[in-house]
Write a protein that binds this DNA or RNA. Sequence first.
RNA 1: CGGGGUGUAGCUCAGCUUGGCAGAGCGCCUGGUUUGGGACCAGGAGGCCGUAGGUUCAAAUCCUAUCACCCCGACCA
Length: 511
Amino acid sequence: MSQQTITPRNRNHSQWYHDVIQSAGLADYSPVRGCMVIRPEGYAIWESIQRQLDKRIKRLGHVNAYFPMLIPQSFLTKEAEHVEGFAMECAVVTHSKLEKDSGNQLQPAGPLEEPMVIRPTSETMINHMFSQWVQSYRDLPILMNQWCNVMRWEMRTRLFLRTSEFLWQEGHTVHETEEEAEQETLRMLDTYAEFCEKVLAVPVIKGRKTNKEKFAGAVHTYSIEALLQDGKALQAGTSHFLGQNFSKGFDIQYLSREQKLEHAWTTSWGVSTRLIGALIMTHSDDQGLVLPPAVAPQLIAIVPILNKKQDDTEVRNTINQLLSNLLPKDAIKIESAHNDDIEKYIIDENTNQQIVVDYRKHRPGDKRYYWEKRGIPLRIEIGPREVESRSCMVKRRCDDTRATMQIDDLTPDWLQDQTNTIYNLMFEKAQQFTQQNTRTANSYEQLKQLLEEDAGLVRCYFEPNDEIEKIIQEETKAAVRNIPFDQTDDLGTCIYTGNPTTTQVYFALAY
RNA sequence: CGGGGUGUAGCUCAGCUUGGCAGAGCGCCUGGUUUGGGACCAGGAGGCCGUAGGUUCAAAUCCUAUCACCCCGACCA
């Protein structure tokens, strides 16, 4: 079962990324250009993200609902900037059936009276519905979320980071006042940041998008930006304050406390399967995927070292003793439909996280690599040598450390402790990387020079301006990622215009 | 939509210039020897050579058309 090797990062970074995904079995290309198949290993990560983020969203009072995938084309045009932003990447449904022509070839037939657009996002549909549901201030706020797929006909795609169809969550809210909507926007950005850092161990920079980079139709957009291993930045999540743009376009009016008809204030916010791309690009190494414990489908892979010549009863007995210590009382053994010789134990039914024992008849080395490239946080090895001493070898994926442990010491508490340690190691490493690859520029020349020398984030004083940002992007390929929240009040000079300004921004190449 | 390139086994590709039995490596299956960091040997399965037409005794190879995909630009969570 020896497998293809993973291309080292320094040789070809995008090939490495592709190899990691393939070897971990996360996703595959599909016959449809730009659309990926998310395989079980990858989908388990998405389910974990969903579960843990959904919990946070609901805690804040939002409720889940589902809206149609098809949107009447006319809806798109109701908010001028919005249609401008998405028109170029909409898949359009124009017919309702297929019929055979004279050559017996199938042809689209039954043209629709009005073409439908496959949602690139659901602002239009959801706000249309909101307009029917909102009558008075008593109906507000509406805090709603949906988990769904969306489609944007992308020119260039990469697995997880940019695909034409992707899975996401889109929250949409309606508020009485501007302040309340603004607060909601920030509250969700905070939720995303906390989630990325605490669950995915991906450090992010919170900030506001410039006018040029904001969401089409938003008054302003906030983002969290992650710096990936190759020095490019990734917008990992966005939260939009939509002002009254959509409430005016879709006529969301309510009777206020003052008996006046007012337009409501709306927000929207989302994160997508792109987070899995961020996860891969933040933590993985030349050996393959590295997963933070919170989203790893399996926390521990136990690899018995078996030798056909010897009786393996003792090894199996020792592993069973280890399991009886390590598994929580309510662990559940998975019934396997086909006998693949991997025993799987669910240790937490809420998260579906598992501990597995790999009894397959492969060489030990093969099995080690198998679990390593899948990013499983911990591996435990037990062979004839360890039986006598009731010990085992514990290997940590994230920093490749190994330790000999007594099997009696491996308890649920020990696992919890390891989980915390691994999270801390991974987060600190990622944080350190971000810091080390963040530099400051005092002039446009220096910005250009820094970006040329090495990818990464460059912080500098800059007055956001559509035209200038366009020029800079043409000249450097880099764009303003965001205007970070951690501004000082110090006065500086804009690197491009030389005007005095207090605004500092991050520039970077981006996905 | 502009510029460049490629379509041959599951994957990576050779073969095409100069037409003559459809190939290699990896992966897969079977058997054996192995087994503490990616094993080895033997055997085997797997092909509309992108598609359609043409030239020819004969086409993966030459010609024409067509489709698809990839790379570089313009657009993007």
